[in-house]
Amino acid sequence: MQYLVNVIDHRSNSGTDEEMVAIDAFNDRLRAGGHWVFAGGLADPTASTVVDGRGESPVLTDGPFAETKEWAAGLWIIEAPDLDAALALMTEGSKACNRRLEVRPLYAG
């Protein structure tokens, strides 16, 4: 079972060097335990472009699809047998990146 983990933030480019070190160490632990699928940081939502290709010509809109006070500043995709395991792992992840996290199941392909 895979879970998408969104890193919740409300300030742009707010990560610190100290947090990066802790996140790297946490990612090593995820790899060692066989839980790591993917991880990455995201640029500020103001750098987003919304593309709508459903019509004859694509419609492009500057900015994120929803204006919110909080957004995802990064993400993990982890492998875990069940929600309890995912939550236990990401409690550590939350400590490492010093942010709240949203843990959301991915549908199996």
């Binding site: 079972m1 047998p81 069940d82 929600l83 309890d84 843990v103 959301r104 199941p105």
Partner: peptide, 14 residues
Amino acid sequence: AAARIPYRIPSAAD
């Protein structure tokens, strides 16, 4: 069902 909350008795620690 969707989030796979397990049907389990928690470990002694939890």
